[in-house]
Simulated assay, not measured.
Amino acid sequence: MIDLYTYTTPNGRKVSIALEELGLPYTTKVVDLMKGEQFKPEFLAVNPNNKIPAIVDHDVPGGLKVFESGAILVYLAEKTGRLMPSDAVGRAEVMQWLMFQMSGFGVAFGQLNFFTNLAPQRVPAAIERFRVEGVRVVGVLNKHLSSRDFMARQYSIADIAMYPWVATARQLAPELFSSSSGILQWMQRVGDRPAVAKGMKVPDLQR
């Protein structure tokens, strides 16, 4: 059994989608970021970096704690032997696009969201900087996906990492995706997967 510490963010949904795709049993533990629960001692014992998501894998004696969404995805793929090619070339292809999401796409739209909607003061230069970077990474992604079905040769943790971030970015700046047919077709393809639809609803705060 795996404990998933998460909230309603793109990074959290990466892991719930992966767990659903892999069919691994897990318990959802909501860490309410709006209430500052990520700073509570009991969560810091799981993730000293006070960020979600994090997991505790109780299949490992003593319970293995893993934090950082990318590290969790790689761990789950290696644990099950799925969603990650076993050959070096295939693995490198998946890893490079996983890192593109984490260091490029996610950063651009995470910062754009902050400076547009959350910053205590409006900073036009910062908004423009991250909007320009958003345009760039959307272009990179759309060109890549215009000639293939998935991020790598087959559906993988790279798709899982990217999907919730694209979904969020489209809500934040829909105009950047209006002519991105490669991305939009990929979104439909991935979003039609039952595990993706289910994982995107974790945690369900309406219960």
Rank of each mutant, 00 (worst) to 15 (best):
I52N: 04
Y75T: 09
R189G: 01
R129W: 01
L33V: 07
Y75S: 03
L24Y: 03
D87P: 00
L184G: 08
K51E: 10
A71Q: 05
V31R: 00
A152S: 09
E128M: 11
F115V: 01
L118F: 12
V107D: 11
G191A: 07
M102F: 12
T6A: 02
V140C: 02
L98P: 03
V190Y: 00
S86M: 11
V89D: 11
K40F: 06
R91E: 00
T80M: 11
D32L: 08
A125C: 06
K143A: 15
A18Q: 06
A158Y: 11
D32P: 04
V15N: 04
N49M: 14
L118G: 03
V202S: 00
S103C: 15
A88S: 11
E68K: 00
I55P: 00
Q96P: 08
L205I: 14
M151A: 13
D57R: 04
S178D: 08
A173W: 06
W97F: 13
F115S: 06
M1W: 02
T28F: 06
G81F: 09
V56N: 08
L184C: 14
D87R: 10
R170F: 02
F39H: 12
L184M: 13
M187A: 12
I157A: 07
P41D: 04
D192W: 05
L98G: 03
Q121G: 05
R13I: 10
M84Y: 09
S180D: 07
Q154I: 04
T168E: 14
N142D: 15
D159Y: 13
A125G: 09
S181I: 13
E133D: 15
A195P: 03
L112C: 02
G191L: 04
F130H: 09
L112Y: 10
M162D: 07
R136W: 06
N117Y: 05
N49C: 03
S156A: 10
R170L: 13
E133F: 02
Q188H: 14
N49L: 14
V135E: 15
I17Y: 11
D32Y: 10
A161I: 04
I157M: 00
K35G: 04
D204C: 03
A173P: 02
V107S: 06
L141Y: 07
F100H: 10
V135F: 04
V135T: 15
V190G: 04
I55Q: 06
P174V: 05
S146E: 09
G62C: 09
N50H: 15
A88I: 13
G70L: 10
Y7M: 00
V15L: 01
G182W: 05
T116R: 15
M1C: 00
V140L: 06
Q121K: 14
K79A: 08
N117D: 11
K201Q: 15
R13W: 01
